[in-house]
Design a binder for these strands. Structure first.
Lengths: 202, 202
DNA sequence: AAGGTACTGGAACGATCGTTCTTATACAAG
DNA sequence: CTTGTATAAGAACGATCGTTCCAGTACCTT
């Protein structure tokens, strides 16, 4: 029977996730991970075959512990535009909670620093984007059922637009300490979505 | 009198810029730079004190050779909303020219992989953002003079919004090969700007 | 108490990193 | 041609990288 480690496997991944998220995959060394996770080199390599394997686990864990909780309102069965508003509000208030520049979105950060051939990582980033798009699309589709002013193609476009805008919001959160700016962005985006869904195709 | 090098200093920077842009600062090694620039190690270190110094020169060069030409319409003295449309069109058609994922924006890529304390690099990224914002703000201000429907604060917000949106567009161009999606995003953004400037505050 | 298991801490490995230095070569000036 | 200089090519340096390995130890089971 396996003995309980001082750090459980998920706690190990959580610590590694924090390091990768804040500092970036290539900058974080195994020595850093040993120090920040509190798990020895042997311990890490007994659970993961190499650094990239651990990072992939972190990407998966990121979906569970970061994306799912905050995106859950949008993915709820009865979610409407207010769910998207709530989602954006959660993001913005998270930015406002700190005076320092944010650490952005792990997925967006990773996208900027992987090589094009890195298919394993890239697949996970695609999954993330499709998850966001699908969530938004379902909401728009539901909101559109009453009026029916938008075509399916319009809804697809709007979902893609929202996904890219959110990625931009996350990305830029790494650059600024001015949360008010991010809040303004979210509000403008939100008003655009409302206008599109309830105010016709503009 | 100094002898002409086989590669001039600007050609060196251009080659290094291409490598940093496509692959990322941390992944590109000095050996890579020697191979791709065609300049020896000694030659590189005679012009730049270290790798970061060369990278800073690349960031500056990026402004000159990439940002300035494509952003020039927006910064023109008589630029209007059509200049922004032209700017977005230039970006999108650049994406459409290739079947592979894009390499994004060097500034946005760098932002995702530097440490928060890296003030020298961060200062250049801030300058870039302010440059974009200022260009957009001037256009909106000019377009607004006739009707005067927008307050100065509205114009500032809209300029920030546009800058972040453009950063998002660039960022996501690294993720997808679907240029149509990016074109759709640009068109939606453009219609929003037109509505805000000429159609009231929504 | 004894044995086995699972982890720690750290030494050690080869590879590669950024950087420096040396040697040889190609060209300009006299 | 000779001399001087700037560059090229690459050896070499210490540091650090990811990874492996080993001895010591704490804990569970019997």
């Amino acid at each position: 029977m396996p003995r309980a480690r001082s750090q459980s496997r998920t706690a190990l991944v959580d610590s590694a996730l924090a390091a990768f998220w804040k500092t970036g995959y290539h900058i974080v060394s195994m020595g850093d991970l040993v120090r920040e996770t509190g798990v020895s080199r042997g311990g890490i390599y007994s659970d993961f075959t190499n650094k990239q394997d651990l990072f992939l686990a972190c990407l998966d864990r990121y979906q569970e512990t970061v994306v799912t909780p905050v995106f859950a309102p949008v993915e709820a069965p009865d979610a409407g535009l207010d769910a998207i508003r709530l989602y954006l509000e959660t993001l913005v208030s998270r930015f406002e909670a700190s005076d320092e520049p944010g650490i952005g979105c792990l997925v967006a950060n990773t996208l900027a620093q992987i090589e094009p051939e890195d298919t394993q990582i890239r697949a996970r980033l695609d999954t993330h984007s499709r998850r966001l798009t699908a969530g938004f699309r379902t909401v728009f589709s539901r909101e559109n059922q009453a009026s029916g002013t938008l075509s399916n193609a319009d809804i697809d476009d709007l979902a893609d637009f929202t996904m890219i805008s959110v990625q931009g919001l996350w990305s830029y959160s790494r650059a600024t300490t001015d949360a008010k700016l991010l809040r303004q962005y979210a509000e403008t985006l939100m008003s655009l979505l409302v206008a599109r869904v309830h105010g016709g195709t503009m």
